[in-house]
Design a protein around this nucleic acid. Sequence first.
RNA 1: GGCCACAUGACCGAGCGGUGAGGUGGAGGUCUGCAAAACCUUUUACGGCGGUUCAAAUCCGCCUGUGGCCUCCA
Length: 487
Amino acid sequence: MNPNTQLVLYNTISRQKEAFEPINAPFVGMYVCGPTVYGDVHLGNCRTFVSFDLINRYLLHLGYKVRYVRNITDAGHLEGDRDEGDDKFSKKARIEQLEPMEIVQRYTIGFHDIMRMFNALPPSIEPTATGHISEQIEMVREIIGKGYAYEVNGSVYFDVEKYSRQYNYTILTNRQMDDLLAGTRDLGGQDEKRGRLDFALWIKAKPEHIMRWPSPWGVGFPGWHIECSAMSSKYLGDQFDIHGGGMDLAATHHTNEIAQSQACNHTQPAKYWLHTNMLTVNGTRMSKSAGNGFLPQELFTGDHPLLKRGYSPMTVRFFMLQAHYRSTLDFSNEALDASEKGFKRLMNAYDLLGKLKTSNTSDFDIEDLRARCYTAMSDDFNSPILIAELFEAARIINTVYDGKGAIDEKNLSSLKELMSNFILDVLGLKEETCQTDDLGQLMDFIISLRLDAKNNKDYATSDKIRNALSKIGIQLKDGKEGTTWSK
RNA sequence: GGCCACAUGACCGAGCGGUGAGGUGGAGGUCUGCAAAACCUUUUACGGCGGUUCAAAUCCGCCUGUGGCCUCCA
């Protein structure tokens, strides 16, 4: 690693880039809001988790001991406007004739499968909301004890207006309280909330409600935001380094998390708040409600009206990493096509590293390139610039391979380390072609047959072999050193 | 309606006060039996109108357009 680069990251709370200084270096605590597992994760969800995978990987690469906590929301979030209606799990369960926990299990496994395909490292701890009901109840009790929440009819609400007199409720979004109030609808007569901005910490369960737990306020289930506050403080302490999630969570979910933690512990839960931007389709945010989302599986197979064809998981990951995590990224077939070719080019160069011949002199200075890679990543995890630098490395590799440039032992060795560090460890990209030994030997044999034909000037046969292989997705490349192939 | 972002070449995307980021595509060339791949050259853009500055894609103002949040969402 390069100790000379200071990592800076953009903190939503200050709306500027700040030097990253962990509370207890070399330990770093990072909490990321995970998925709600009542349905398949769509590609937009995946983008956030790939972004935080990059952040996690870079922190690890820099030598930090990261405890990465990402929750699974499997309870309690309500649908509808006024905390009415079924919870998502029991509703979905009724549709599919399954137990709520069966739904949770199914989609949790699906989520893990997808994350594995994207080559995302698993978090250190992946707590579930249903597994931490008592912690949530305890936190609600404390908030009531501190005077920032009140019970009505078996439900508990957070008193936002009281809180906002002592703390800056809108610290994350910098909104004015008056504007927030203007944006809310009138409270109906039946509403139990005292203030229109108040939100539920604990909700009384209706008789038909399946997911329910006993509490000091009766049988019910936790509100939307309390799980993250309870679980983050349990595993990372009342104050930790990084809290992350999608930008859509900042205004409501994270704002309320901060309020809960402040009210309970009188501390800001996280030092740095990181928010990833949305994936868009034709300029519009991909979301469940807009119906413009598609599933990773559909993207891989190409089985979707918006898709011309399928793209591999690593192509999609590379596509995501070519944009900065705080920018929106617009999805299109053309953009995926471009990323696919770029990704192959980069990985092809990486493969060539082992075949390079060294010289006594070197036309390239890898040290300088290496420094630029660290500079890019340390500037708020700027993976697009890192990738641009890696393409420069690819050019060097290809030039040397072509015999049009020289590299010495020392620079080649640092080039190998650089490529491996950044492509594999930091960007988390991996080879997708499974070149088994059997296939390799078979290909060697076919290539030797074709070489015989070529030597006999039997180009009809040599082209026939090449065309046939091309049809099954294997490209032959005749070079000075002989013929190579790739899938 | 309120608040907040963003507008970059054929496309995707960095940059955010002063040397053509990069990828894809297009054109030309080198290599090759021909291809492919690779390499070289080329394709020099920053929504509009003002302003600040020796200098602006980059700062400020206005306008236009798009999007996000305000209601579950990564």
